[in-house]
Computed example of a mutant assay.
Amino acid sequence: MTDFLKVFLITLVSDIDNMLILGTILHRYTYLNLTIPAIMVLTLTRTIYVVIVNRITDFPMFHLLMGIVLLIIAFKLVRTSINGEPVRKPARGSYYLKAKVLLLIAATDLLICMDSIMIISGITQQFKDIILGIFCSLLISIVFLPLIVNLASTFFWINIIAGAFIAQNSVIGILNDPLLAGPVQAINKLFPETELIQIAANGTIIIFIIIGVVSYRKQQRITIHK
């Protein structure tokens, strides 16, 4: 299997849940027609991340801070359906607004694509394979984005499950941060038959699924009363 195909498949598979988050942003600003610009920006930024990922991930507190922000994103995802995100009315499709939305997409993507970025960085450092693989994968993902958005709007549990797994990955990242290595090892020594990171990650999934289901039921009650 060529490096291009590996990069393509890894990005395509890992973006299934990521597109729920990025899709929420693109859905709100549909009138700006940012599909192609978003693909180009994400291809560029992800390529840069692959090149420098090994240096970035060594910084203390990087995983900790990234995990905390991801937890916040996951929390919002399980509590708010895509139907609850209104499409913004076209006031002025200025270049400033387009640049602002693209920057928001790129910043959000930095937090949610790091798992695939780290895998890709271990496969190849060839710009051609990285750029083509990521671009083709994003093109397919965003072309089918309306289908993903419609599914998430129709089946509320898709948002909840995606948010729960994002929260799980964020907790794993937080507890793997070098800053917390000492406390985590100490707890594992106190309780040798338990694996703190795995227990915390699995517990996070359960908690976020409960939060999502409760929030959905509350939204349904409000809708019915209206």
Rank of each mutant, 00 (worst) to 15 (best):
V41L: 15
T45C: 12
T45Y: 07
T47W: 03
I48L: 14
I48Y: 03
V50S: 09
V50T: 08
V50A: 08
V51L: 13
V51N: 14
V53H: 11
D58F: 14
M61K: 03
M61D: 07
L65K: 01
M66L: 13
M66S: 09
M66R: 02
G67M: 08
G67F: 02
L71F: 10
I72R: 02
I73V: 12
I73Y: 06
F75A: 09
K76L: 14
L77I: 04
V78D: 01
I82H: 09
N83E: 09
P86R: 08
P86M: 05
V87N: 08
K89H: 14
P90L: 14
P90W: 13
A91Q: 15
G93M: 14
S94D: 15
S94W: 14
S94A: 12
Y95P: 07
Y95R: 15
Y95N: 10
K98I: 08
L102K: 01
L103K: 01
L103C: 12
L103V: 14
I105Q: 00
I105E: 03
T108E: 06
D109N: 13
C113M: 05
C113A: 11
I117D: 00
I119G: 00
I120Y: 02
S121G: 10
G122N: 09
G122R: 06
G122F: 01
T124G: 07
Q125K: 13
Q125A: 15
Q126F: 04
Q126S: 12
F127A: 12
F127W: 07
I131N: 06
I131Y: 00
L132K: 00
G133Y: 00
I134R: 00
I134S: 00
F135R: 00
C136H: 01
C136T: 08
L138E: 01
I140F: 07
S141L: 15
I142Y: 10
V143M: 09
F144P: 00
L145W: 05
P146M: 10
I148L: 11
N150Q: 09
A152D: 04
S153W: 04
F155I: 15
F156H: 09
N159M: 08
F165E: 10
